[in-house]
Amino acid sequence: MTFLLHDYWRSTASYRVRIGLNLKGLSYEQVPHDLRLGEQATPEYAALNPQRLVPTLVADDTAFTQSPAILEWLDERWPEPPLLPGDPDGRAIVRAMAAIICCDIHPINNLRVLKQLREEFKASEEQVSAWIARWIAGGFTALERLIARHGGRFAYGDSPTLADCALVPQLFSAERFAVDLAPYPRIVATGATAQALPAFARAHPDLQPGADPVLPTLIR
Rank of each mutant, 00 (worst) to 15 (best):
W78Y: 15
L71T: 05
P68K: 06
P50L: 14
P43C: 09
E39T: 05
A69E: 06
N49H: 15
I70P: 03
D34N: 15
W78K: 11
D34K: 12
L57F: 05
D61P: 05
Q51L: 14
A41D: 13
R77T: 15
T62I: 14
I70N: 03
E44H: 01
A41E: 13
L57E: 02
E76I: 03
E29T: 04
Q40Y: 00
H33S: 04
A63G: 05
Q40T: 01
Q40C: 07
T56R: 09
E76Y: 01
P32M: 06
L57P: 09
P32Q: 01
I70V: 09
A59N: 15
W73H: 00
V31K: 08
L37S: 09
R52T: 11
D61Q: 15
Y45L: 02
H33P: 00
A41R: 14
I70F: 03
E44L: 07
F64I: 10
P50D: 08
F64Q: 00
E29W: 09
P43Y: 02
D34F: 11
A41I: 11
W73V: 09
H33G: 05
P50G: 13
V31L: 08
R36I: 06
F64P: 04
A59E: 15
T62L: 13
Q66K: 01
G38Y: 02
E44C: 08
P43I: 00
E39P: 02
W78L: 02
A41L: 15
A47Y: 02
D61N: 15
E29F: 01
R36N: 04
S67G: 09
E39Q: 15
D61G: 14
Q30M: 13
N49P: 11
A69R: 08
E72Y: 06
R36E: 09
R52E: 08
G38P: 04
L53T: 15
T65N: 13
N49I: 11
Q30R: 07
V58I: 10
L53N: 06
P43D: 14
Q66L: 08
L48W: 11
D75M: 00
Q51F: 13
L57W: 07
Q30W: 05
E29N: 12
Q51D: 13
G38M: 01
A69P: 00
S67T: 07
A41K: 13
P55A: 07
L48R: 12
S67A: 11
D60F: 09
Y45D: 10
Q51N: 15
P68T: 03
I70S: 00
V54A: 02
V54T: 05
Q40K: 07
T42W: 08
V58S: 04
V58D: 02
V31I: 14
T56P: 05
W73R: 07
E44D: 12
L35F: 00
A63V: 02
V58T: 10
F64V: 06
G38C: 06
H33V: 08
V58M: 02
T42G: 12
A47G: 11
Q66R: 07
P68C: 04
P32E: 08
L57H: 10
E76R: 12
L35Q: 02
R77P: 03
P55Y: 10
L53Q: 15
V58Q: 12
A46T: 13
V54W: 03
L35D: 00
D61V: 11
A69V: 03
H33D: 02
D75A: 01
P55T: 10
P50H: 13
P32C: 02
A47M: 10
A59F: 10
T65Y: 11
D34A: 11
E44V: 04
Y45E: 06
L53D: 07
